[in-house]
Each structure stands twice: as structure tokens, then as C-alpha cells.
Design a binder for these strands. Structure first.
Lengths: 228, 228
DNA sequence: ACCACTAAATGAATGTCATTCATTTAGGAT
DNA sequence: ATCCTAAATGAATGACATTCATTTAGTGGT
């Protein structure tokens, strides 16, 4: 058998980075493609499996090629986070009364980011300038608050308070079910242990949802009273 | 000059790991010491400078020695987080009415962890069994809720809601002041831009504090109404 | 006293990453 | 034609966390 001239040495998986050195005729990468691939990779492998090398592999590219389009891994995370912001449903602010709109937005926001909690530390300190779709979300929400007669000077504070609650609650969704099981220390924490048991008996739905509902309705009720 | 027999070769800094191989007469490390050193290191160098090697250096020990007492870096973070929980002020639950107690606890809790936001992802999914001091905090808080006539089945949900809000708000404290500066995109986001400006004019105190106060008072007011 | 066991150190790998750099190539502008 | 810049490759680099073999010191049992 003659050594094959065109076959790859390792026919294990297809789509290996078979591209010769130098600038290709048409660009392979751009930020949109990187974002989409990152999102898909995160969906398949989670944030643990999300490495620059793995991302490059799914794009059929050398890792270093990514750095022609983003300046760091954090940059990729910012792109992903901004894309996710566009998945948050703000449509209710144009069609429904304020209370219902806030409720729909908040649940949607929490649901989107509960699948992406590793992004929360990134979002929380990210200037809105770097995240246009996130900024668009804020615009839709503040327009809704404004239209509902919310006092101008408190709109941002109210949104920040809601958002803080949403981010914190997103973590809860991912927490293990038995996180409050006090185990062998139950005797030394009678009040807490009793409260945990009472909750298990009395509440319907997932605990994270019950808590989110409780806090959200509290904020909606009080904030609603601020409207002129 | 004879070659000195006891002087170290490199007199650059003192306290290098000059200890001969093998088990020392008295143990050098324990979890309490590791926790204290970690806390001090984090205070000095932040979470970026917090590496196992750096921690070992401050303890005058080889990095691998740490693994005789903790099983991972995450383990160290759990120890630190649990220590911080003991710094949260729950004393008001024994001396003050419910509303004031919740208020004092929540502000204290936020202030402690706003300096340690990288721990939040760790805490949020940590079983209480692994964090005895955190469990003690929950016990004090739920005892306070119980004593105040809060319905048993909702105590945990209420605490979780408050805690979620607290964690999210802890991030806000660390956010840059101009995080909401929409910059060149201001024209396309008139409502949000106006709201940001109105806030700057009208509100006193740090924005993060104003937002935290707003959300916290909303929860206290509504939750207070649940008491029997 | 002796011996086996376990605990607690050291120091030398290991392997995984993100990131950088030199090099190569393509296409557009002067 | 020539130059410049953009976009690839592939080969370092440098941090890290973590593991392993080895050494030494007490301890409990015989």
C-alpha cells in the first residue's frame, strides 16, 4: 500500500484545523461567529469546558487566531453576556401595565442568567458602553418606568435594586436541593432546622421560585406605590 | 572569611522556607492558621494575588504542604467565607424589634461581602453543612424571625430572598462609578440617559447605598406584614 | 526497647490554561 | 510593482493548581 498523499494521518474526527499558514482568502472569524460558537460550546460543555483552546477547536482555528478579534477570554464572555441580554424579554413594557411588565421582565431575566451564573461577576461591573444590547434592555425598561409615572430620580435605583435581586436569585436556581440540610448539626440549630422542615411541607413549587416570587412581589408592590 | 555555616545564601528577604525536609517537631499548619493567613493575604493583595503559592509563602511553607490540611483552593475559600459569616452582625435579633434587626443584619451582611465578591459564587451553592458559622448565622436569623411571629413555612424563603438581594447588591458596591455612562450611545437611549442624569442630581449618598436601601425597605415592609 | 503506622513537611514533576511572538500569506492602496 | 495591514499558523512562555515520591517525627502496641 502506497502512503496516501492526501489523506490525513489521523482519521479520528473530521474537521481538524487543516488550513495552511498565512492569511486565508476569506476571513474565517469575526465577533459574531465567535459569540455564536462560544454560546454553543458553553451550552454543550458548560463554563468548565469553555476554554480558548476548545473554542478555537469548534471554529476550526488555532487558538491564537482568536486574539485577532478579541483581546482576552473576558472579552468573549462580554460578547456572550451582551448577546444573552438580547434574549431577555422586555416586550411587556410596551403592551402591559407596569406591574405585569416588571414581573415578566424580571422572571425572564432571571431565567436567562440562571443558566449563566459565571457571567454575573462580569456583568455586575461592566460599563454599559461595552454592552450595547444590555444598554438597549435598560432603555426599554426605563422607558416603561417613565411611562408608568415613576419618579425620574428613582428609576435607576429601582432598576439596580431589582437587578441585584435578580442576579442573586439566579444563583439560587443552580443551588443543590439539599443545600439547607443541616445534617448532624441539626440539634444545635433548632429554629433553622424547623424552618427548613416547615418550608418543605408547606410550600409548592421549587424553593428558588418561591423565594424569587416573594422578593419580587415585595419590590413590585412597594415600588408601584412610588408612581405618581 | 570562612564560609558561614548557618547564614542563608540569599539574605534578600527574611523568613524564607528554611526548614529541612521531613515532619517538623511541632506542626506548622492548621486550618485556623491557613484561614487567617488567607484572609490577610486577600486583604493585602486581593483575590488576584491570592494563589496557593502566595499563601504558602506567607506561611513560610512549601505549597504542597497546604494540601495536608485542605483538599483544594476552593476549600480555602470555603474556610474564608465561613469565617466572614461570623463577622456578620446578628446581635440585633436579640435586642431590637424585627424590622430594625433585619435592617442591621442586612447592611452588615452586605458590607462584609462587598469586600469579598469572588466568594459569592462559592457561598451561593455551598451546603450549610460545610460552613458551621454560616449555619449559626442562619440559626440566629431564623430564631429572630420566629420570635417575631413570622409564619414558619415562609421563614426560609424570606431569608433566601433577602440573601439573594444582599449578594447581588454586594457586587454593586464594587462597580465603577460611571458604569451607567452611556457615552456615545446616549442619543439612542434617551429614557435611560435621562434617568441616569436625574439620579445624579436628586439622590444623596452613594448610588449603591440608595439602591440597596430602596430594595431592602421594600422587602422589610412587605415581609413585616406577613407576621402574625 | 522495637516496630509499624500515620501525619506533616519538602522538592520535583505534571498538566492545563491564557496569552504572546515570529512568521506566513492575501488583498487593497499608493 | 511595492507597501501596508489584516488574519491565519505554530511554537514558546509563564502562571497556576495539584500530585507524587521522599523524608522525618511522634504514637500505640508488643
Amino acid at each position: 500500500m502506497p502512503a496516501s498523499t492526501s489523506a490525513r494521518a489521523d482519521p479520528h474526527h473530521d474537521a481538524k484545523p487543516r488550513r495552511r499558514v498565512g492569511r486565508p482568502a476569506a476571513a474565517v472569524l469575526d465577533q459574531a461567529g465567535i459569540t455564536a460558537a462560544a454560546l454553543q460550546l458553553i451550552g454543550k460543555s458548560g463554563y468548565d469546558g469553555f476554554t480558548m483552546a476548545a473554542l478555537a477547536r469548534t471554529l476550526n482555528v488555532a487558538p491564537s487566531a482568536l486574539y485577532n478579534h478579541v483581546s482576552s477570554k473576558r472579552d468573549v464572555l462580554v460578547l456572550v453576556q451582551d448577546h444573552l441580554a438580547s434574549l431577555v424579554d422586555v416586550s411587556a413594557f410596551e403592551a402591559e401595565p407596569w406591574e405585569r411588565a416588571v414581573r415578566a421582565w424580571a422572571w425572564s431575566y432571571r431565567d436567562v442568567f440562571s443558566q449563566h451564573t459565571p457571567l454575573i461577576p462580569v456583568i455586575a461591573v461592566l460599563p454599559v458602553t461595552d454592552a450595547p444590547k444590555t444598554l438597549a434592555m435598560y432603555e426599554a425598561v426605563s422607558a416603561g418606568f417613565s411611562r408608568a409615572g415613576f419618579p425620574q430620580g428613582r428609576i435607576v435605583s429601582a432598576i439596580v435594586a431589582l437587578e441585584s435581586f435578580i442576579f442573586g436569585s439566579a444563583y439560587d436556581v443552580t443551588a443543590p436541593a439539599d443545600i439547607f440540610d443541616s445534617g448532624s448539626m441539626a440539634e444545635s440549630t433548632p429554629n433553622f432546622t424547623a424552618a427548613v422542615q416547615a418550608q418543605d411541607l408547606e410550600s409548592y413549587g421549587k424553593p428558588a421560585d418561591v423565594a424569587f416570587n416573594l422578593g419580587l412581589e415585595a419590590m413590585i408592590a412597594r415600588f408601584g406605590a412610588l408612581r405618581g
